[in-house]
Every structure is written in C-alpha cells, then in structure tokens.
Design a protein around this nucleic acid. Sequence first.
DNA 1: ACATGTGAAAAAATTCACAGCA
DNA 2: TGCTGTGAATTTTTTCACATGT
Lengths: 223, 223
Amino acid sequence: MPPSERKKPAAENDAAVPKAVVNRLSLYLRELQHLVAAGSATTSSGQLGQKLGFTDAQVRKDLAYFGQFGYPGVGYRCDELIEAIRGILGTNRHWPMAIVGIGNLGRALLGYKGFSHQGFRIVAGFDADASKIGKSIEGVEIFDIAELTNVVQQRQIKLGVIAVPAAAAQQVADQLVAAKVLGIVNFAPVTITLPEHVSHVGVDLAIEMEQIAFAVVNRLSGG
Amino acid sequence: MPPSERKKPAAENDAAVPKAVVNRLSLYLRELQHLVAAGSATTSSGQLGQKLGFTDAQVRKDLAYFGQFGYPGVGYRCDELIEAIRGILGTNRHWPMAIVGIGNLGRALLGYKGFSHQGFRIVAGFDADASKIGKSIEGVEIFDIAELTNVVQQRQIKLGVIAVPAAAAQQVADQLVAAKVLGIVNFAPVTITLPEHVSHVGVDLAIEMEQIAFAVVNRLSGG
DNA sequence: ACATGTGAAAAAATTCACAGCA
DNA sequence: TGCTGTGAATTTTTTCACATGT
C-alpha cells in the first residue's frame, strides 16, 4: 500500500509552491527514471540529492509540499515516487500540443523524442509559409497559421509552443489565447503579455548562453 | 560622463551574486535592446520592471550588485546600461563555441540567429556520424568527434554545447573538459558531472513543458 | 518634482536537528 | 540502525521607505 497521501491531498491550496520547487521536482522525476532504468527499486533523499547537487533536507522539504511519499528507515520506492510526481506535475495526463513556427527550431521540436514520455503529444504544426503548409514533418501535419483557431479546437490542443521570430511572437500568442489554449511555452526572444488565466514559460536560448558567459567570467561552477 | 562605477569595481568579491539576479540581468538587457530598437534613449526601473513583471525596487537592487548606473531624477540611459550589462555578463567579449551532436536540435542551434548579437560565434560542429563529417551546415564545418580536442584547441573554443542523446552526454562532457573548454551548456536530458572549475547550465526541453503542465493543472500564470 | 541607491524590515527559502517509525 | 517528516533556526531574497542627487 503506497503512502501516497498520508496527510495532504496532494497540491492543496496550502501555500503557493515556489517555482524553484516545481523545477526541482522535474529533476527528481528525471533522476528517478534513470535510476529505474539502471535497475534500482528504491532510493533516498540523500542519494537523490547527491546526484543533483542538493541537500537531503531540500529533497524532503520539496516533497513535503505535496504529501508523504517515503518510508522512514527505508527511503522511497522509485516507481511510487515517479507516479506521485507525475501526478503532481500533471504529466500522467494527455497534453495535445501545437508548434507554431516551423523554422529550424520548430522542426527540431517536432522531432524531439523526449516529449512523449511525459504525456506531451504534438498534434499540429503551424506556419505562414505556403511551401510548408500541407506537408507532414516528423509525422506531424503542418497547417496554415490562419487555421490555428479551427485546428486547436478540433484537435483539443491544450498547449502552444511559440517558435516564430520575436517580431511575430506577441501576435501568435494572442491567436493561441483566442483559440483557448491553457498554456504557452515561448521560445521567441521577447517578453509576451498574456491574460492572467493563461500560464506561460519563456525559454531564450541566447539567455542560457549569457548565463554560462557570466559564470565563466566570474569563475563560478553553478548550473 | 557615464557613472559606470561611481563606487563598486563591477563584480567585486563583495558577495556571491544569486543566479536569479544574473538571469534577470539578461532579461533587462533584452528589454533594453528592444527599447533602443523602438527609439527610446532612456528608461527607468519602473518601466523596465513593468515590462518584465518585476517591481522597480527589484530592478534597482539587482543592478546595485554591480555598481551605480542611473541618474537620480532621470532614470537610465539605455545605451549606457546596455554596455554596462554586457560588460557584467561578459557578452561584450568574443565567445568561440562548438555544438556537439548535429541532430535536429544541433542543426537548429547551428542556424540560430540570436547568438551572434551577444558575442557567441559557432566555429565548429561535431558528430560521430560519418555522413555528416566534412560537410558544412549553416556555414559551420562539421568534424569527427574524435577530432574534438584538436579542433577546440586550434580554434580556441571556449564554450561547448551538448546536443547528443542522454546516453552519450557524460562522455561528451568529459571530452569537452579534457579539451579545456571553460563552460558547457547541456541540452541532453540527464545530469552531467563536471569538475568544479568548469561552469555549466542545463536546459531540458521536456522539463520546460513539465513546468507549463504543472502551472496549468494548478491554474497558475507564472512564467 | 522625480527617480535613484540603499539601509532596514519583511518575507521566503534553505538548512539544521531531532522525534518517530521501520 | 537508517531514513523520513517537520518544527525551529538560519540564511537569502524581496520589498519598503526615504535620504540624496538632478
């Protein structure tokens, strides 16, 4: 019998969960999946923390936001903790998603293998370039961006990924919001403005490089 | 006369600068460059913060880690602050870099236009696949990964980008370290272990999607 | 008048340290 | 014994609020 929620109804309105905690949760999940692939059945906060560069207390405190998942004196059963974290993150559900902008980055995202394991399925691509429309790339149909609202509704798309140039990003974001996606990941190097009820995450490849440059210039090893 | 450093020698050993501060610095820089492109000569902590969703005090405190860059009663001169931040981040230098792994993502990175504006120049690609070696993609020569050490030294490559499958990432990281790169950006979905003196940043596309899933499931709008 | 820069206060996140259970 | 879960202490980060400079 898994101790899934000996106390807390997993993600109650207790307190706002810091974004950093959610990010670490994803790292724990990734590490747990590697552990299972390597044949481990159980692990501990100490082992998990060591692999990722966190303290054992941090691992336990992070999990404590959501419930009690371990066995005192023993540790955590990997498969149970994986399922618990997937439930918390929502990656045990199906997430139909669309990529908008089929340039170099858009194509790379269409072919990325890592999404399917966490419930993300790319069910449409969009572009304004007539030479791409109607084609199928990596098994995904590419539509005219003018069809976005229709296709998002027909295919029940919940998440949109913006991979267009900066100048077009806000307009694409507006179209995705109008089509009623629930969340947006923005790869364009610009800040987009969205209504409160639409979640978003921004990823800027140049900014990641800038972080490494700073770390090097200041001789830091941080990750 | 810019007030560049009325007090602090920009990035002294005062105190460790939080990673979150450095990340926001990159966002300020991006926003300032958009402001200049839009014709603004000056801005203020309030305006900058509003565009990015931070308070004015936060913007000022972040900059205060590195010196005094503003004019009381006036604000900041965009061009001066841009140069100051570029100096802090180190993006006013030249950063020869290499992409290891010329799959979908590697190719997208080779063609990414956003790097050159911040001093990053891709001067080599590496792959183990004989059909790619010797070719030129997006104007970048692709070498056999066995040549990594030689090429890194010949071309004075300072940063390495890992875009290989998870199973090969640690080995590639070790090769980059042996070739004496100063920093590594890892796109493989695995935690890599590096010596203390090599800086690193990890970017996992699936984890970014997981963050959006969590935000949606918990009806958050955070970015 | 207006916006910076900065001590002081407040809030948040992390680490400590130990009771309790397997 | 070994490891979790968690209050308490500590450290870090953010916000406040105002003296200072233009």
